[in-house]
Amino acid sequence: MGNNNSSLKHKNKKIETNKEIDNKTTELEEKKELKYYIPNNYDDIDRVHMFHFLQRYIFQSNFSSPIEERLMQEKCKVLDVGCGPGTWLLDLANKYEKCVFYGLDNNPIFPNEIKPGNLNFIKAGMFDGLPFPDNEFDFVHQGFVLFVVKADQWNFIISEMIRVTKPGGYIELLEPFSSFRGFGPIVRKIHEAHLASCSERGVDMKVLPNLDKIIKSNQQTPIVYKEERFFISGPNGGKVGTAHEDIYVGYHDNDAAMENLSPILGISKEKYKIMITKDLVEELKHTSPEFSLLRFWAKKINNN
C-alpha cells in the first residue's frame, strides 16, 4: 500500500490550506443512503457531542499520539477526516490557539459561523481522496467511521491520511469495538443486526481491531501503536456505563434506526420501539455488556 499513486490522482483538486476558506452556511441534508449511520438531525448531533466527551473521559485525553508539546509550542496544522459536527476539533482549537485546524466531511453538519478563528470546515468526501497536497499536516485524525467504510476502502483512506501527513507527523484513528462479552440477548440481537446491515453494504466490522495491520503495510508508517480501553455499558458500569447507555439507547430509539433494524430483526416497528425503550433498558440493569474504544496511531517517517 503506497501513497504515490493517490497523490497523483488527486493533484488537480488540492486545497491550499494557507488560504482563507469560504464556509457558507448550510443546513442539514437528508441522506437517502446510510441515513441511520450518518447524523441527520440535532438529536443525532447531540449524541455525537456526548460520545466525544465520553471517549475523552475514558482515555483522559483527546488523542494518544505524542504530539502535545508540538501543539502547544508550534503552529501545527491538524486535519480531522469525517469530522461530523466538529466536536473534537472545537475542543482542540480552543486549547491550542497557535495551531490551525481543518475538518472535512461530506455531510455539512459542522458550524460555519460560531467557531474559533483557527478552525476551518470543508465539505468534501473522503472516498475520492483527500483534497490536500502531500505532506501538508502535522496531525491527521479520524474517528467513528466504522459503519460507513467498506472493507476494501480502508487501505485507500489510510493511505490518503498518510500521504497528506508531514514526515515526523502523526496519524490517529479512533473506533468503538465490542467483543460480545457479557452481552444479554437483546444487546446481542442488536449487535448482530448491525453486522448483517453492514455486511449487506460491504462493511466488515471485524476489520476494526486489525487496523494496525493496514497502517503497518504502508512503508512510511512501519510502527503502529494500539491502545484499548474497556468499559461496561449500563448502570453496572458506573458513570461511564450510564453515559454510554444514554448514547446507545438514544442511538437506536429513532425512526431511521427502526426502519433499518426492525426488518433485519424480523419484528414490527411497534415491537422494536418497546424492545429499545423498555426491554433493553431493563436488560442493562441485570447485565454487564463490555465495550471498548480503540486508538491506533503511527508516526510518518521520511524514507526518501
Rank of each mutant, 00 (worst) to 15 (best):
G234T: 05
M205P: 02
D128N: 13
K239E: 13
N94P: 02
R295I: 10
P39T: 06
I274N: 11
D204P: 01
W154S: 02
N236D: 06
Q60M: 10
G125Q: 00
N18R: 12
H252N: 09
E259C: 05
M258T: 12
F63P: 00
N303L: 12
N210F: 15
N112Q: 12
A124G: 06
K189H: 04
A243V: 14
M50Y: 08
E270Q: 13
V249M: 07
I162T: 03
L79N: 03
Y42H: 15
E172I: 01
L195I: 13
D134S: 13
P39K: 06
V249Q: 05
Y248G: 01
S7G: 07
K278C: 04
W154E: 02
Y248R: 10
D279V: 01
K32I: 09
T26K: 14
S7I: 07
A93G: 05
L261S: 03
G234I: 03
L195P: 00
C76Q: 01
N118T: 03
E33V: 07
K115D: 01
V48T: 13
K299E: 14
D128I: 04
N254M: 06
E30A: 11
E16M: 09
I67E: 00
M72K: 14
I21Q: 08
D105C: 01
P39C: 10
L195A: 12
I15Y: 10
G241P: 00
N118H: 06
R188I: 02
E16W: 05
I109H: 07
P176S: 10
F180D: 14
S61R: 09
G117T: 08
P235Q: 09
F230D: 13
T242Q: 15
R201V: 05
V240G: 06
H194G: 09
N107Q: 11
Q219A: 13
A93L: 04
E200Y: 11
D152N: 14
K150R: 15
L28M: 15
T17I: 12
G129Y: 07
I214Y: 07
R188W: 12
G250P: 02
T165G: 01
